[in-house]
Amino acid sequence: MMTLKYQYQLFMLALGFFSRIPVPASIPYSEERMNQAGRYFALVGLLLGSLCALVYGLASSVLPASVAIIIMMVFSLMLTGAFHEDGLTDMADGIGGGMTLERRLTIMKDSRIGTYGASALVMVLLGKYVLLSELVKFEQIATFIIVAYTLSRAVAASLIYDMPYVSDADASKSKPLAQQQSKLELTVLLATGVVPCLLLSLPVAFTLVAVIIVFRFLFKRWLLERIGGFTGDCLGAAQQLSELLIYLTLIAWMVNGA
């Protein structure tokens, strides 16, 4: 089951699940395959980040940087169907508005958006715009986008490895990914997530990885305390928050002349 054809099929499943990019209808599907496809979550992020960087580059060649950023952000939302942003809002509503575990999980399944979710969504989108507006001042903006998209998805999917799944799998959009990852899948995921960091200087790359490790530890601990594990919405929130943290860390390096 380790042939190139099989791995290609797994990647296509991951691409179809985590983005709106069309994939061949002939790709075989099963819950086992979909679960294994999680190993390519970061690779999907690499592709999405590259496309977004390309869109920014094209837009910025004829438009002001601020307009190009908005265009890229809209393109990104369309590319993923706001998949991760939706998870962030649901998690914020559930954990922010629920006083018990059962209530928090119930709120997360509600498709309606509440005050906590709306506030989180506005702040994250605004945060991305502000941070990217600072990063475009530097020549490596395309690299920054690719690194952020790839590494943030790696840390989000890695939470599946050592955390219990606490939602109703039958009603969850992340049901195929709810099973525990194997060490091989985790290794592929993390290796893919870290490799783009090598496009940066080694001190910056090491700092990013260290910051993400700390974030993962704290976020995991927080989720365990709040809901006793993770849901698919929590993975989306992890991706969004870690992406912001990566941008923030890069800015800290750049503005200090690193």
Results as ranks from 00 to 15, higher is better:
S167K: 14
Y116I: 12
T143R: 00
S172K: 11
M123S: 08
L177G: 04
P203I: 01
P203A: 00
R153N: 02
S152R: 06
Y149D: 14
V130P: 07
A156I: 00
L190K: 08
S182D: 08
A169M: 10
S158I: 00
S201V: 01
S182N: 08
T106R: 11
Y161N: 09
K109H: 14
L131D: 00
L190G: 10
S201G: 03
L131M: 04
I146Y: 05
V136C: 11
L189C: 14
Y165P: 01
L151A: 12
P196F: 12
Q179T: 06
I160P: 06
L135E: 04
L135C: 05
L151G: 07
Y129A: 00
R153V: 04
I146R: 05
P164E: 15
A156N: 01
A169D: 10
S158E: 01
T150V: 13
V122G: 09
V147P: 12
Q181K: 15
P176I: 02
I113A: 13
D168T: 10
L190A: 10
T143S: 08
K128Q: 14
K175A: 08
V194D: 09
L199Q: 14
A118H: 01
T150W: 09
S182E: 10
A120I: 04
G193T: 10
C197I: 07
A205C: 01
R153Q: 03
Y129N: 04
E139G: 11
I113D: 12
D110Y: 07
S167T: 11
G114D: 13
E139L: 08
T187N: 08
S158W: 02
R112G: 10
M163C: 04
K183R: 14
V122N: 08
L199H: 12
P196Q: 12
A171H: 15
A120L: 02
P164W: 14
I146A: 05
A120G: 02
G114S: 13
K128G: 08
D170G: 14
S111M: 13
R153T: 03
Q181G: 07
Y129W: 01
K173P: 06
Y149C: 12
V204W: 11
L189T: 10
F144N: 09
P196G: 12
L190W: 11
T207D: 03
Q179C: 06
R112Y: 07
D110E: 13
